[in-house]
Amino acid sequence: MGHAERIWLLLIGLTAAGAWLAETGHSSWGLSLVVAGLIGVKGHLVIDHYMEMRTASPRFRRLLHAFVVLVPVLVLLSHGFSDVLQRLTSLG
């Protein structure tokens, strides 16, 4: 099995784990943490191995990785500080 096949299998396996969570998960810190982790790991795999950014310009690579780091952080902040976000985005 080649490198691309291993990465594909890993991504499919992680997606299956996400699907299982979708059927069984309830709102909790645990669920948000796992989802944030899955977004980060799967994003990292696609960026470095599908897009070949691990051998590309470090600046481009950092910018792409920033995306899959920022979104999981926002997922966790949204879970923990929902009321703050609501206050900050309310009119009047």
Partner: peptide
């Protein structure tokens, strides 16, 4: 692949979280 990366965020937003 970029559309993959974005979908990997959208999928848990609406089906899992």
């Amino acid at each position: 692949h970029t559309t993959d990366v974005i979908w990997l965020v959208i999928f848990p937003f609406f089906y899992v979280l």
